[in-house]
Design a protein around this nucleic acid. Structure first.
Lengths: 262, 262
DNA sequence: CGAAGTTTTGACCAGTGTCAAAGCGAGTGG
DNA sequence: CCACTCGCTTTGACACTGGTCAAAACTTCG
């Protein structure tokens, strides 16, 4: 399990530059624990002290903030290999929470040990670039929420996820199942679940997807992406689809089973 | 001028940990050029190749994206000391533009040289923490756009700016002038300038501010902050108001004149 | 004085939010 | 195996925020 975590993280980082065998070895040595999370379970909460670094190993997680009135804003969707928090050096308590959207597992790495890793150029660079992609996605979300109507917002979010999942090797052919319910989508898009429902129906009528209980079926990924318009260049390096290998077949199947079909 | 740039950057970074005299010396050695920008002038544009690293020295800038339909979404407001782009290692073209909202100046630092700086722990840590604050602000914006109504959005944005300006020593007493016009505010908040106008009038009626041509007068900063509700803990380390010194008096007056009154 | 950019107003409209209730599926305990 | 419960989805009526369009009022600057 622990080596699995190191492998997922290493695979993710290798998107951004080759790591030496020693780099990977170091990562492997830093894994502490592994945790299983059920939907709605939290990895950590806003206000918690920053301790170890959490990495998503399998499943679907999100960064989110809860407001005084009880509403929730999802700040980012996290897929296997993503860091729950990319601020290595921050000492302050978290200003957001991370929770599971679907069943999944995370692993912890020693934060202080990882800070030392900054002496290793390849790792420092890889972590920094991973963070860069994170930032770019966040910028895209900001644009989405600020300037696009419901349909485009939804389509673009889903399209983004298909690209990111494909980069992980989790898209088989032209079809995909996303294990998100309408409430989660709503909280990610800054709208109500009612609105998501209406728009989903509309997209279903357009033949772009099929909403099901707790998930979205996309039978024609290419069509969905086309509806989103532009190619998501903001995913930058991540989209080096050539590099898609890297997860073992077992890992892939596990991820598919746990994260998506769930 | 160039040493001015290094000083502003160093001052900003020192918020996040002490820099050695040698660290500062290194920064000073890396400044390339200085540029003056008029309102609406761009520092760089989406699609441009990433070359040197730009730092805001004085004035008010913003990161933004232009959409196909001509609308603009402002992604971040940049104040003196802020990096136009915090992705040191990214090689890809920019996925956003940076432009001036008010007259101001920027300086460029050698990107490759700065990358080498990562060997210096104090600098690496400081840059990383500066980025962390950047990210936290961006999260706050996401929450704002997703979950808050017009009045709160506007109040919180303005309140955030007062805090950030105070950390730079640019708030004299309890009064402040923000050199942003209604269109810029609208593009930052993801609404129309009409809506901003209406809300501004409302806030004026509540005695929180006075809209003027091209700027917002806040006579009672404390009241505005109170209206925003919570203390902006998300600004984290930046809000160490004790450390507010650091800019020379001349620099401060310059910044006040150029950035704010403009 | 004229031109350009910004702010202001008003009328009207559309998209979302709100509220309430019903429908459906999956899982649970009897 | 069935009845029940819980959580998620769907629908409809209605309210309301904020968007759209058009035009006028200012300011500033040349």
């Amino acid at each position: 399990m622990l080596s699995e975590a190191a492998r997922v993280l290493a695979h993710r980082l290798e998107r951004f530059g080759t790591l030496g065998a020693d780099d990977k070895q170091v990562l492997r040595a830093l894994v502490h624990h592994s945790h299983i999370h059920r939907p709605k379970g939290d990895v950590f909460r806003e206000g918690d002290r920053r301790r170890d670094l959490h990495v998503v190993v399998s499943g679907l997680f999100c960064r989110y903030r809860l407001l005084a009135d009880g509403s929730r804003q999802i700040l980012a969707i996290l897929l296997p290999g993503d860091l729950c928090d990319s601020s290595f050096w921050a000492e302050h308590p978290y200003d957001f929470s991370v929770g599971a959207l679907a069943c999944g597992s995370t692993a912890t790495f020693s934060r202080t040990a990882l800070q030392d890793l900054y002496r290793r150029p390849a790792l420092a660079r890889a972590f920094s670039l991973a963070r860069h992609v994170d930032d770019a996605i966040s910028r895209e979300w900001l644009v989405n929420m600020g300037r696009r109507g419901m349909e485009q917002r939804l389509v673009r979010l889903l399209s983004e996820l298909t690209w990111r999942l494909e980069a992980l090797g989790l898209v088989l052919g032209n079809t995909i199942t996303l294990a998100m319910n309408q409430t989660d989508l709503a909280d990610a898009l800054g709208v109500t679940h009612i609105s998501v429902c209406r728009t989903l129906k509309q997209l279903e009528a357009e033949g772009l997807l099929v909403p099901e209980r707790g998930r979205i079926l996309v039978q024609d990924v290419a069509a969905l992406r086309a509806a989103a318009g532009t190619y998501p260049a903001y995913l930058g390096a991540q989209m080096d689809v050539a590099q898609v290998t890297g997860l073992t077949e077992a890992t892939r199947r596990h991820a598919l089973a746990v994260a998506l079909v769930n």
